[in-house]
């Protein structure tokens, strides 16, 4: 995968054929999740898609309940907006004359959404399979369950795509 800034505020992403296949499959799965009713999801996934405004245990105050409702409403709108973006990108892919490599041009805002959406998929996979920090650091070959291994691999590959788009960064101040 490649990512280059073609002018201020505009980016051009490039995907080889297997990368395109991988990204399109991720987007298709995400689209399904954006359409699914969080009320019918397992608790951890439901909490992710609806959001939790306060970590305080016990009965929330009326004010916190109001904030919680606002957050859930905003997250529902976000899912609809992201679904619309996926449909646009899918349409762009269908119309693309050249698909090997496939190039897509995005504004910085769209690129940020794309990054956040790939991260949505990583988070959803981890929550669905209760993936822990130990799982993420483990040698893939040592993970016995095929589904779990595939999920961790997908989380890793999407993480790699995200880092390519972010460019080289160094975190300091440990």
């Amino acid at each position: 995968m490649t990512s280059e800034q073609i002018e201020p505020g505009h980016w051009r992403l490039g995907f080889t054929e297997p990368e395109t296949e991988f990204v399109l499959s991720t987007l298709a799965r995400l689209a399904r999740q954006y359409q699914d009713d969080p009320g019918k999801m397992p608790p951890a996934l439901r909490a992710y898609w609806q959001g939790i405004i306060s970590s305080k245990p016990g009965e929330p105050s009326a004010e916190v309940r109001e904030l919680q409702d606002d957050l859930a409403e905003a997250r529902t709108e976000l899912r609809s907006e992201r679904l619309a973006l996926i449909e646009n990108w899918m349409r762009e892919f269908e119309l693309a004359e050249e698909r090997e490599p496939w190039h897509v041009e995005l504004t910085t805002t769209e690129r940020d959404e794309f990054i956040a959406m790939l991260n949505d998929r990583r988070m959803a996979l981890a929550l669905e399979l209760s993936i822990t920090e130990e799982d993420m650091e483990a040698d893939l070959a040592q993970i016995p369950n095929d589904g779990r291994r595939a999920a961790i691999l997908e989380i890793d590959v999407l993480g790699h795509f995200i880092l390519v788009m972010l460019g080289p960064q160094i975190y300091r101040g440990q």
Binding site: I115, M123, A126, L166, Y171
Partner: peptide
């Protein structure tokens, strides 16, 4: 809050983007 999946670089990027922190504070 901490979670097992979000990447360190990604978190720094989000803090810079959303909270307008500089690199040092975000890190």
């Amino acid at each position: 809050w901490n979670d097992p999946v979000n990447l360190m670089d990604y978190v720094v990027y989000v803090f810079k983007t959303v909270l307008k922190m500089n690199e040092k504070d975000a890190s």
